[in-house]
């Protein structure tokens, strides 16, 4: 086990896959000579050379499309989208091309590519560089979407994504890149896609979180008898683990970094409610961001994402009253 930062765990995963498989190659803006805007490919140019570690122009559609073509021809390209928002100019290549190729070729063409994109708030990058935008890609049949919440997941999911024979989008919470954690390297450290992680056992309530909200949920759960689950793969998500947990606890809270409307938590709440209606002790609910862009001012940005204090208060109220508490902005009489 090695202690490393999340961004170093990503470098380690890329390096281990590149050593094991010569078809793995990297493309992205300033990922080679500069080692990546977030240092997630540091040292890889030196070890693997400029054919396999390529700096690109500012041409997201071009290099993401090139990854689709290279993947069709037997390479395993990993492309870096510096901020998830920039996938906006290349979305066709991922959602409409890569995700459909296997199906539209009658199973003859596979597209084993990985799109890594940094997501989320917390860095003061402003409203156009702080969204998670998982809705752009999740719920696209054929496209796996995963999000690491710590260094081990960053290592394990990245390796699994590269090994996967179809397209995978990895949404990496930018705010976690500098977080440290213990990492098991090698085959034992690989986390299978589609498998949620039970981060903390508990019996009173199941808290499902993803990416940056996992550490929030874990901190909030400290004085509660809560089971915290890191969904890890958002699509297709691990129904077995989540349903199994709620069957035991009878209560579900989803903590999301996404606007309240249309967030991925609806999918979890809806499935759990439909499947386990009679086993529930209270209505499942979601703790989310408000339906507003991520504001820049530090005091506002820090409130936009559910805080540990807020999640603790919401879950405590929920457990005490059996009712779903109102979100903070409604309590304060604020709406958009």
């Amino acid at each position: 086990m090695t202690r490393m930062r999340v961004r170093q765990a990503i470098v380690a995963a890329l390096a281990d896959e590149m050593r094991a498989d010569e078809t793995v190659m990297l493309m992205g803006e300033d990922i080679a000579a500069a080692g990546g805007p977030f240092k997630t490919s540091e040292g890889l140019l030196d070890e693997f050379g400029p054919l396999r570690v390529r700096d690109t122009p500012i041409s997201e559609m071009g290099f993401t499309g090139a990854a689709v073509g290279a993947a069709c021809m037997g390479m395993r390209p990993v492309v870096e989208i510096m901020f998830m928002e920039f996938l906006g100019v290349a979305l066709d290549m991922v959602v409409t091309e890569a995700a459909k190729f296997h199906y539209l070729s009658g199973g003859r063409v596979s597209v084993p590519m990985v799109v890594r994109a940094s997501v989320g708030s917390g860095g003061g990058f402003g409203m156009q560089h702080s969204q998670t935008l998982e809705n752009w890609v999740a719920a696209t049949p054929g496209l796996v979407v995963a999000t690491p919440s710590d260094a081990q997941a960053a290592y394990g999911l990245t390796r699994a994504a590269i090994q996967h024979d179809g397209p995978v989008v990895m949404l990496e919470p930018r705010a976690l890149y500098a977080e440290r954690g213990d990492v098991v390297r090698g085959a034992d450290g690989i986390l299978p896609l589609g498998k949620a992680r039970v981060m903390r056992p508990g019996s009173n309530v199941t808290i499902v979180a993803l990416g940056q909200t996992v550490r929030v949920a874990l901190a909030a759960a400290e004085e509660l008898d809560a089971e915290v689950i890191d969904l890890a793969t958002l699509y297709p998500w691990d129904q077995t683990t989540v349903l199994g947990s709620v069957r035991k606890t009878g209560r579900l809270v989803v903590v999301e970094e996404a606007p309240q409307s249309g967030g991925w938590g609806h999918e979890i709440v809806s499935t759990v409610t439909s499947q386990l209606f009679s086993a529930l002790h209270a209505a499942p609910f979601r703790i989310t961001c408000p339906d507003a862009p991520v504001p820049y001012s530090p005091s506002l940005e820090s409130r936009h994402l559910p805080t540990t204090e807020y999640v603790r208060r919401q879950v405590t109220d929920y457990l005490r009253t059996g009712q779903v508490p109102a979100p903070w902005w409604l309590e304060e009489g604020l709406t958009a």
Partner: peptide, 24 residues
């Protein structure tokens, strides 16, 4: 009012549309 930050300046009185944070 401080919700935008460095990358999001604008003033329609002098013809400046909100500055663009997405290249191109």
């Amino acid at each position: 009012g401080g919700v935008g930050g460095s990358m999001h300046l604008s003033d329609l009185d002098v013809g400046l549309l909100p500055t663009f944070a997405i290249v191109g």
